[in-house]
Amino acid sequence: MKDVAQSVGVSVTTVSHALNGTRFVDQATKNRVLKCVQELGYVPNILAQSLKGKGTKTIGIIVSDISETFFSEIVKSIEKTAGEEGYNIMLCDSEGSSEKEDLYIHLLLQKGADGLIIAPVDQYKEFQWENQTSKPYVQIDRKIQKAKGSFIGIDNAGSAQRAVEILIENGCQKIGFIGYKDLFYTMGERRRGYLNALESAGLPPYQFISEHRGESLDSLAVWMRQVCPDGLLCTNEVLSYYALLAAEENKVDVPQDLKIIGYDDARWLSLLKTPLTVLRQPTEEIGRSAIQKIIELIGGTCPEGRKDIIHNWEMVVRESCGSQNKK
Rank of each mutant, 00 (worst) to 15 (best):
F70Q: 01
I117T: 03
S77Y: 05
T81F: 06
I74N: 03
T81Q: 14
Q110N: 15
E95H: 12
E79M: 09
F70M: 09
A113L: 03
C92A: 15
S97F: 05
K80V: 06
T81P: 00
L116H: 03
H106Y: 08
Q139S: 05
K135L: 09
L108Q: 07
I74V: 15
D93K: 10
P136E: 07
P120R: 04
E130N: 12
L109A: 06
L91C: 10
E126Y: 07
D93Y: 07
I74E: 05
L108H: 01
Q139Y: 00
I118C: 04
Y124E: 13
L116A: 06
Y104N: 02
D102C: 09
S97D: 14
V121K: 01
S98C: 08
M90D: 00
L109R: 02
V121P: 01
Q139F: 01
Q139P: 00
L108G: 01
Y87Q: 03
V138R: 02
E95D: 14
Q123R: 15
E73P: 00
I89H: 04
E84R: 11
V121F: 04
M90Q: 06
D102P: 00
K125S: 12
T133Q: 07
I117W: 00
F70C: 03
G115K: 02
E85D: 10
M90E: 01
G112F: 07
I74R: 02
I118M: 05
E101S: 10
Y137P: 00
Q123T: 11
E126D: 13
T69Q: 09
K135V: 13
L91G: 09
Q110E: 15
W129L: 12
E126G: 07
E99S: 14
K100S: 14
G96V: 07
E84I: 08
E79V: 10
Q123L: 07
E68C: 08
I117A: 04
M90C: 08
F70A: 03
S94I: 08
Y124W: 09
D93Q: 11
T69K: 05
M90F: 11
E99D: 15
